[in-house]
Amino acid sequence: MTPALQGLLTIAIGVLGCVGYFYLSNQFLDKVLCPPRGPNAGRNINRANMIRPWLFLFPAIAALGLYLAYPVVETLRLSLTERVPGGGYQWVGLDNYAQMAAEPKFWEAMRNNMLWLIVVPAMSTAFGLLVAQLTDRIRWGNVAKSLIFMPMAISFVGASVIWKLVYDSRPEAEDQIGILNALYLFFGGTDPQTWLTIPFWNSFFLMIVLVWIQTGFAMVILSAALRGIPEETIEAAILDGANPFQIFFRIKVPQIKATILVVWTTITITVLKVFDIVFAMTNGQWETQVLANYMYDKLFRANDWGVGSASAMVIMLLVTPILIWNVRQVRNEGSPSLGGD
């Protein structure tokens, strides 16, 4: 069977299975378990109404529980155990964490991750806000926004290839094919640089890729927030003689502070999970390691599930404040940050 046909068939089975479950389980509830007729009609209707939400919810809860909640607990357990060569696990307490803390590569990943956590959300939000404000009043603003939003659709891997070409470096005698080196030489640089191998600064060249992707997201949301600002506040400021910069920083920004925070935290979550960019561009060489890639290395290259799980728990720990904030936001009818991807 060709892969295409196989794919189509499995799609059909998957979708039919899903629809089948919901249809048949509801039919079963109404026709067999609690039919709304006969001597117990009233009681049956009430019962059916109590059971039905759980029929609707069951697959979703199963998926959430199994694929997100259970792994948190299981990863915690794995991080406190070690695989015994013969099979099975052995409780080792905090040994994995101690071992991890003794590795310079881990601290390099932590340091880089902190840099990423500061730079990427800050730059993406700042650029997003800038574009949102600038395009607000010009006629071709929507076209501009659409183009800046576009990288959002491009995979991290695709973006890595795109930027690898930008950062490409050729020996001095040859024509440069990477635009960054071409510009660098044009503006008076002496020799072509291999940007991705300059320790410390190379992390920033990787961050640019993510900023490039995330700015569109920040822009879309902040642009809507800017439009939502009541006109009167701005008109009043103009009458009071405020200049455009004052209007922006003193009137507009304070009013969309909550949205800025949502954007910031959402990008923070993305940053913590960033794996593909580092994996594809440097694979953590030249001191560009980050936590997610460190974890992947431990899990699937070194096959050390204990330390791998421990580093996953570190990521979880860093996300936890946002998680708590999210839950409280929803309780207070605010907007949480979106983890999605």
Binding site: E74, M295, L299
Partner: peptide, 16 residues
């Protein structure tokens, strides 16, 4: 559900 929005999928790799 809102809490699980932010759980990094990295945690799920090995257990799953």
């Amino acid at each position: 559900v809102v809490g699980l929005l932010v759980v990094p999928l990295q945690l799920a790799l090995i257990p799953l």
